[in-house]
């Protein structure tokens, strides 16, 4: 399976990863190689097989509707690169 440069660029954009022009050939080669490995999956017929998203067939356990958390804003925001007046700051969002 080969993958072209525009696809690499599209995927990098979806994943929000900056990509240097120079990295594209190597990235293409790696991706193609991995996809070749992965495509061994197509050597068998899986018609009629249900996909398995989780190793165990168990149902979700639900939580009671209770407030258990307290305000820890100051503690959490110690890790933040930029805050003001309790808000996290980002470059202007244009809607």
């Amino acid at each position: 399976m080969s993958i072209d440069s525009s696809e690499i660029e599209k995927i990098a954009w979806l994943a929000r990863l900056s990509l240097n022009e120079d990295d594209i050939p190597a990235s293409k080669a790696d991706m193609s190689k991995i996809l070749d490995l992965v495509e061994q999956m197509n050597t068998i017929d899986t018609g009629g097989i249900e996909p398995l998203a989780h190793p165990m067939d168990i149902r979700a356990r639900l939580r009671a509707d209770e407030v258990t958390e307290t305000d820890q804003r100051a503690h959490f925001q110690k890790n933040a690169p930029a805050t003001e007046d309790g808000h996290y700051l980002v470059p202007k969002v244009i809607e």
Partner: peptide, 19 residues
């Protein structure tokens, strides 16, 4: 009273990021 996936309060109008 609490959020769909956490135990934080859902009350409207609290100070930014305190809930």
């Amino acid at each position: 009273k609490s959020k769909i996936f956490s135990g934080a309060a859902t009350a409207y109008g609290a100070d930014a990021n305190t809930q």
